[in-house]
């Protein structure tokens, strides 16, 4: 059992190393030296450095890779996601093997660490009208509430069950909405997100994901 864990941890570490140049290349100027500490961790398989390899030295995520920011997300939410990755309910080849390598304590440490980092929000998707429309008004003719109705003004998140969308990479948000649609991510409380995502077209998903990413790569009129 222990040996499996160690081996898995090694695997994780190697994978994390693979992504290190990507993360540091993109964010070298903002990386504080402490983020370079490479050590196996704060507890039970959690290594801040290993997570930083993909999620950024400050948990800010990576837009090009579609890797989510973790800063300031609620610890219970992060914990739930790591357990879902570990059990395979939430499917992602890299995160499945990483989460399996963490003990329950390691999951708690990782979740608490990122939860206590103050979130960073961005001004949102100027110019993308259809994304803004869904985000702020929803499409009630099909019983689709606005994203902000639950995720809060500017999608900055509400409580433990409605994580911040603000500033997450468009590619990540897009992938999650598709994952809710096809069941490769658990449907969330009351199956809310499964139900809502299935009423969205590919174009809706693209537009609303771009809106919350705060990305400027949006053409007026909301066309992808």
């Amino acid at each position: 059992m222990n040996r499996t864990k160690y081996r898995a941890r090694g695997k994780v570490f190697l994978k994390a190393l693979l992504f290190l140049p990507l993360a540091f290349g993109a964010h070298a100027e903002t990386s504080p030296p402490h983020a370079l500490i490479l050590g196996v961790g704060e507890g039970s398989g959690f290594s801040r450095a290993a997570c930083a390899g993909c999620h950024g030295s400050e948990g800010e995520g990576n837009a090009a890779g579609g890797i989510p920011g973790l800063r300031g997300l609620p610890s219970t939410y992060l914990e739930k996601q790591l357990h879902a990755f570990a059990s395979g309910e939430r499917k992602n080849p890299i995160m499945n093997s990483i989460a399996q390598a963490l003990t329950a304590d390691g999951i708690t440490h990782a979740a608490n660490y990122y939860a206590q980092l103050p979130p960073r929000s961005r001004p949102l998707g100027a110019g993308d009208e259809s994304g803004h429309e869904l985000a702020v008004h929803g499409r009630w003719s099909e019983n689709v509430p606005s994203c902000d109705d639950c995720h809060g003004p500017d999608g900055k998140g509400v409580g433990e069950n409605f994580p911040a969308l603000n500033g997450q990479p468009a590619l990540y948000l897009e992938n999650q909405l598709r994952a809710f649609q096809n069941g490769s991510r658990p449907p969330g409380p009351l199956r809310l997100m499964e139900n809502i995502s299935r009423k969205l077209s590919a174009q809706d998903i693209r537009a609303v994901s771009l809106y919350y990413s705060g990305s400027s790569a949006v053409t007026p009129g909301g066309q992808p």
Binding site: P119, D149, C150, G152, P153, K156, G157, V158, G159, N161, F162, P189, L190
Partner: peptide
């Protein structure tokens, strides 16, 4: 089963981080 998720177990709703009442 159906309401506490948003309105809270105590019925007092939920706020965003900036204090804005969402539920």
């Amino acid at each position: 089963n159906h309401c506490a998720l948003c309105h809270g177990v105590d019925g007092q709703g939920r706020r965003a981080g900036d204090g804005h009442v969402v539920f």
